[in-house]
C-alpha cells in the first residue's frame, strides 16, 4: 500500500511527471531556437553547454535572481497570480496525456473536455495578466489575445472532439487505445490534423498569429511589465504549453505511445512530439505576421467551415 503510494508520487513528481516535463520544456526551447536559427541561416545558441543545449537553463537561472519589480499602477493580486497560473495550468494538463503507456496518469470519461477548458483558461489568464499590469501595451496585447480566441476557439474544439467520434468516447486514453487497435486518426481525418495544427499555432501565439505579442508594435504584449521570477515562470509556462500542444496532437492524431520493436513507448511518443514540434516551428519560421483583423476574418471564413465539414464527414462515415 505504502509502496504503491510512493510509486504514484514518483510518477507525479519525477517520471513522467513534473521534473521530466520541465526538462523536456527546456529541451524544446533549445530545439525551437536551434531549428529557427538553422532555417534563418544562423547557428542559434552555440557556446552554452554542448551545442548551446544549456542556454534555456542559463536564461532561467539568470531570471530567477533578477530584481522583481511590481509597477505602481499594477493590480497586485492578479499581477502575482498570472505567472503562477500560466506555469501550473499546462503542467496540470500533462497528467491527462498518455506518455509512457496507453493509460494516462489520471483518466476519466470526459477528460478531453477538461483539456479544452484548460486551454481556454490559459488564454483568459493572459488577458487578465495584460489588464493587471496597468501598461497600455499590456492592455492592447491582452485584448488582442482575447480577440484571437474568438477566432480559433471554435475550429479547435471541433477538431479536438472529432477523434472522439470513431472511438466513441471523450476520454483521451480510450481514443489512444482505439487508434492502436485500428489505425491512426490522421489517415482518416487529414483535414482535421491541418486545422488543429493551425489552431494550435494561434493558441501558442507563434508567428503567423503572434499579433498579441508583436514586438514591433506593442513591445511584448501582455508580458511587457513582468520581470525576474515572474518572467522566468511565464517563459517556462510558454515552453510547457508548446510541448503540451505537440503531445496532445500526437496523442489525438498520431496514435500516441506504442511499443515498436524494442523501443519503449516513451521513445516513440517523444519522436512523434518532436515531429509535430518541428512542423510548428518550421511554419513559424517561414511565415510573416497577420494583422488581428486578418486572423479573425481568415478563421471565420475558411477554418470554421472546414472544421464543420470535417465534423460532418466523420459523423457520416462512422454513423449517426
Amino acid at each position: 500500500m505504502v509502496s504503491e503510494t510512493l510509486i504514484f508520487l514518483g510518477q507525479v513528481l519525477i517520471f513522467p511527471g513534473f521534473l521530466f516535463i520541465i526538462l523536456l520544456a527546456f529541451f524544446a526551447e533549445w530545439a525551437v531556437r536551434k531549428i529557427t536559427g538553422r532555417i534563418q541561416n544562423r547557428l542559434g545558441p552555440t557556446y552554452t553547454g554542448y551545442m548551446g543545449i544549456l542556454q534555456p537553463i542559463a536564461d532561467f537561472i539568470k531570471l530567477l535572481r533578477k530584481e522583481d519589480i511590481t509597477p505602481t499602477m499594477a493590480d497586485k493580486i492578479f499581477f502575482l497570480i498570472f505567472p503562477i497560473m500560466y506555469f501550473s495550468l499546462p503542467l496540470t494538463a500533462f497528467s491527462l496525456i498518455p506518455m509512457t503507456e496507453v493509460q494516462a496518469l489520471t483518466y476519466f470519461e470526459g477528460d478531453l473536455i477538461l483539456l479544452t477548458f484548460i486551454f481556454t483558461i490559459i488564454t483568459a489568464m493572459v488577458f487578465l495578466g495584460g489588464f493587471s499590469s496597468g501598461n497600455i501595451f499590456s492592455i492592447v496585447g491582452g485584448t488582442r489575445s482575447a480577440t484571437q480566441l474568438l477566432g480559433y476557439e471554435i475550429p479547435l474544439v471541433f477538431t479536438l472532439l472529432c477523434p472522439a467520434i470513431p472511438a466513441g468516447s471523450f476520454s483521451l486514453t480510450t481514443i489512444v487505445e482505439w487508434q492502436q487497435n485500428n489505425s491512426w486518426i490522421i489517415w482518416t481525418q487529414p483535414l482535421g490534423f491541418g486545422i488543429i495544427l493551425t489552431c494550435m499555432l494561434a493558441e501558442l501565439e507563434l508567428t503567423p498569429f503572434d499579433a498579441p505579442e508583436a514586438e514591433t508594435e506593442i513591445v511584448a504584449g501582455s508580458i511587457t511589465e513582468f520581470s525576474g521570477v515572474k518572467l522566468a515562470l511565464i517563459r517556462l509556462g510558454k515552453n510547457i504549453k508548446l510541448v503540451l500542444a505537440s503531445s496532445l496532437i500526437s496523442a489525438l492524431y498520431l496514435g500516441g505511445p506504442e511499443q515498436l520493436w524494442i523501443l519503449p513507448p516513451i521513445m516513440i511518443f517523444l519522436i512523434k512530439v518532436f515531429v509535430v514540434l518541428f512542423l510548428m516551428v518550421s511554419l513559424r519560421a517561414i511565415f510573416a505576421r497577420f494583422r488581428i483583423d486578418q486572423i479573425l476574418a481568415g478563421m471565420w471564413k475558411y477554418l470554421i467551415p472546414l472544421a464543420v465539414t470535417q465534423f460532418l464527414l466523420t459523423k457520416i462515415l462512422w454513423g449517426w
Partner: peptide, 13 residues
C-alpha cells in the same frame, strides 16, 4: 545569439 545575447523590446526584460 550564439553567445546567448538577444534583443528585447521591453526594458523590464
Amino acid at each position: 545569439e550564439r553567445f546567448g545575447i538577444m534583443l528585447k523590446g521591453s526594458p523590464r526584460h
